[in-house]
Design a protein around this nucleic acid. Structure first.
Lengths: 233, 233
DNA sequence: ATATCTTTTGTACAACTGTACAAATTCATT
DNA sequence: AATGAATTTGTACAGTTGTACAAAAGATAT
């Protein structure tokens, strides 16, 4: 029966939805098949294994999303005013993680949520892809930020970019927490507001002075004392 | 055989370690028993079920950790200078999440990492505990911040506290990412540095002006336009 | 030592897991 | 209509899952 010409896509979509809301090991191939209206055997036909299915999801999204980020970053770097440029850089990183350009392959909150789940579970197959594909994108953003904030050490920039990604992930993982704690005043599922809040908060944290630097935000003092000797875990 | 008088504790500890590094559904009761040097049946004897075992871990840590937070928060509120007070408030929230007072029950990075995993997996049993126990603590911190930054709307404070928690979680979930992206310049596993970086970044983001507010950070303009109509997922 | 209670062990069960594969079905080309 | 490739189905397998429970082993008190 070669009936559904988009069975492969249906399985991919179902897997994406289920993985992103329950995690990898909590979702079985049979769950995916059921959600996609397919036979379990069909899943192992189109994708050799469960791991391969997960990787196929990543391959579909990573390229378009990081391409879009590169475009927006290039546009941001053409901005003269350093403050506006910094905000544009952060926005270039955040926006493609929340919204998809072409409906399926763009990027989108669902895929970003999936990435959050996978990095929590520490999935081994995904670990390789992340280091390969994402580190390149991340490095170019870090360098762009370094140019806009030359007084900051690379360590501090990396830490603050890590916080950005954590904020981004967690806003997608527990949006209902926003709604609950604000007593309904804010809506955690509001993507547009999430983007604005993340951008404003991140730009402010990036503009903070270096740790141990008592002078103003824009005054340089490069070599900061490395208070980094304790090494647990 | 009532040989090991601390078998219950050994199982709790093993479960904590395994859950915090692989997630809930990826770890089996047999895995836990093996790591604790116990018989699988012994696990279901001390804790009725796998869910109950997870809840026991939460019960052991939540109380001491939030008590410590309350102490530090009370001390912070005695600080007169509003800038220093804000930093002390943030520190009162962050420090107990990273370090344990009494070795086992205090809190500690391992338990916080576990919480990060569970909130990603969306574990139902944990969901109830979180809403009950943590919301109370969170509300008191939000109110303390509201007092120190009266020009900010509650929504914005909640958003930025959400980012704080996301940053905290993710710094424990992917510390090796820090080391890798900084090319060894920073050590993501350095708890002391993580705390300092999180505190500085969070204080700066909290002090940022409200969205849509063009005036300086400390100038009030309460009612901000709610750009919150899009409601997906 | 006897009896009672607590803890540990071992085994069993039904349900579910990822994967493999032959048979059946559909489609495109001739 | 017939051939051949592509897809879907159904079933099977060995291994794992959470849980239940009787039997054994230890501890405690009398």
């Amino acid at each position: 029966m070669a009936r559904n010409p988009n069975m492969r896509e249906a399985i991919l979509g179902a897997a994406e939805t289920l993985f992103s809301s329950h995690g990898y090991s909590a979702v079985s191939i049979r769950d995916i098949a059921r959600a996609a209206g397919a036979n379990p055997g069909s899943v192992t036909y189109h994708f050799k294994s469960k791991d391969e299915l997960l990787l196929a999801i990543y391959r579909r999204h990573c390229g378009p999303m990081n391409d879009r980020r590169a475009e927006l970053l290039a546009a941001a770097m053409r901005i003269r005013d350093l403050g506006n440029r910094l905000e544009a850089i952060v926005r270039a990183y955040v926006v493609p993680a929340f919204t998809s350009s072409s409906d399926l392959a763009g990027g989108g909150a669902r895929f970003t949520r999936l990435r959050a789940m996978m990095s929590a579970e520490g999935n081994a197959a995904v670990g390789r892809i992340i280091a390969e594909i994402f580190d390149q994108t991340n490095q170019s953003f870090i360098e762009a930020i370094e140019q806009s904030l030359p007084h900051l050490s690379r360590s501090t920039i990396v830490w603050r970019c890590q916080f950005l990604l954590g904020a981004l992930y967690y806003s997608l993982i527990s949006p209902e927490r926003i709604t609950r704690l604000s007593r309904g005043e804010a809506n955690g599922g509001d993507v547009a507001q999430a983007i604005e809040q993340i951008v404003v908060a991140t730009v402010a944290s990036l503009q903070a002075p270096e740790i141990g630097d008592a002078s103003g935000p824009r005054v340089a003092r490069r070599g900061v004392k490395a208070s980094s000797e304790k090494v647990p875990a």
